[in-house]
């Protein structure tokens, strides 16, 4: 007789709330990976999340653990305050490119430089989603958005900012990596990266940073499939996947 085994279920650290994200958005996938990693490391009941301003402002709705909803860009500062008070908790921020790479540049750089023992998940989809598709600090040169209708002009607005590469120049961070979830293979690598980051935090090693190159089908005006295609063709050459800092060599272990 055949026995049945459940091989796929909602992670315990996630709630039963349906995602409010647009169809095809990567947020849901990354949320799930976060939930899976926290479950597998058995820290779901010890986690405290910090939600940003942006599409994932309601990230707290989808997890079962404690959350703080921070002001725009300030999540790393808020997470600093939380982690300093409760060093035994797994504290992470979840931020978009406008939040982290524009208004919150000072907060992310200095939290990383202090080596705050937190994990930062950085969703880089090259555009402001929630406010309606404006140019982000990571918008590609030539890319059309609501506030760069003729395409991003590097002479006028500079070039897309490469946060992982920047943070990797600092002494304190122990893990800085860039991943994507556009293919099953990349998704598995992204999960491994997230798990590495959370494990390093659990072991009290230091600041960990996972950038996820993502899509915005709605504001890019593309279907999810086309958007993932565009990500592979246009974004990955500018934001190459890979680990930029791995002080303890966890990627190889």
């Amino acid at each position: 007789m055949m026995t049945m085994e459940q091989v796929f279920a909602r992670p315990k650290s996630m709630s039963k709330t349906p995602f409010h994200y647009c169809p095809g958005c990567d947020h849901g996938v990354v949320h799930r990976l976060v939930g899976e990693c926290l479950d597998e490391l058995e820290v779901g009941d010890k986690a405290i999340g910090v939600a940003p301003v942006g599409c994932s402002v309601f990230a707290y709705d989808y997890f079962n653990f404690d959350f703080n909803q921070a002001a725009h860009g300030r999540a790393p500062a808020v997470a600093t305050g939380i982690k300093r008070v409760r060093p035994d908790r797994i504290v992470f921020t979840y931020q978009g490119d406008g939040d982290l790479a524009a208004i919150g540049t000072a907060e992310i750089v200095h939290a990383a430089n202090r080596g705050e023992k937190i994990t930062v998940i950085f969703i880089n989809n090259a555009i402001y989603g929630m406010t309606g598709g404006q140019m982000a600090p990571t918008t590609l040169v030539g890319m059309k958005t609501a506030t760069s209708p003729y395409g991003r002009d590097a002479q006028l607005c500079g070039n897309p900012i490469k946060v992982s590469e920047m943070l990797a120049t600092l002494e304190a961070p122990v893990y800085v990596t860039r991943v994507a979830v556009n293919t099953p293979a990349n998704l598995m690598k992204a999960k491994k990266a997230l798990k590495n980051a959370f494990r390093l935090q659990k072991e009290g090693k230091g600041f960990t940073f996972v950038e996820v190159v993502s899509i915005c089908p709605t504001n890019w005006g593309k279907s999810p499939t086309d958007a993932h295609q565009w990500l592979a063709e246009k974004m990955l050459p500018v934001f190459p996947l890979g680990t930029y800092k791995d002080t303890l060599g966890v990627d190889k272990s």
């Binding site: 300030r74 500062a77 808020v78 600093t80 008070v85 000072a106 750089v109 200095h110 202090r114």
Partner: peptide, 26 residues
């Protein structure tokens, strides 16, 4: 205790927000 010199007053007050939300007198 923890004394932390922040990168700005904006960061400092948001650290206060985090610490207060975690239950500390800050």
């Amino acid at each position: 205790g923890v004394f932390l010199q922040a990168e700005s007053e904006v960061a400092a007050i948001n650290m206060v927000y985090g610490a207060a939300s975690a239950g500390a007198r800050v």
